[in-house]
Structure formats: C-alpha cells, structure tokens
Amino acid sequence: MKGTKELLTWKEIIPGNVILNPGNAREYRTGDWRSQRPVWDFERCIMCGMCYAFCPDAAIFEREDGYYEADYYYCKGCGICAEECPKKAISMVEE
C-alpha cells in the first residue's frame, strides 16, 4: 500500500484518527501474496456459487454470464475454492 496516505502530516489527520472512506483498504493488492492461482473449468462448473460463499477474501465474483471467477488483484491463492468445489471444476496452477 504505497502512496502519500502513509505519509500524512499531523495536520491532515482527522481528530481521533477516524477513517472516513469505508473500505479504502481495497487499494491493497493482496494478490501479491499468491503462489498458486485458481483456474475454472467452465465445462464442469455448475454455477453453484460454493466457491464464492467460501472465499475468505471476497475475491471471487459472479460474472454476467453466471459463472464465477477470481479477482486476482485480491486472490491470495489459499486454494479453498478448489478444495471445496463439488464438481472439481477449479484447479490451482503455479504462478
């Protein structure tokens, strides 16, 4: 999380160190931690959404066509989605 916010001056700090922008930690690229990446086999996928429900990082999103996919900006590569997929439609691939 590099940027000027890390270097706020004391005058820029809101009283009580309150943070006014909800969820602004979204800037932080947790995807950098990843050594493996989940890849979907849409032939097998039944769009059940289990991968979405079990993702600790809310890094799996539903596409417009109803299939699910990882947002690699955030995906830490834990492999839960691949482990839990009832159709074994997700495989973990080395980065």
Partner: peptide, 21 residues
Amino acid sequence: ERPVTMGAFAMPQLFTETKVA
C-alpha cells in the same frame, strides 16, 4: 448512513503524527 472507522491502529510512520495532532 456514513460509515467511519474509529480506533484503527497506526504503524510507526504515522503514530507520532497522530500524537502530535
């Protein structure tokens, strides 16, 4: 209506600024 975060922790590069404020 306007969610704020109160009581965040500060790393050393910001702690002193919070205390000076």
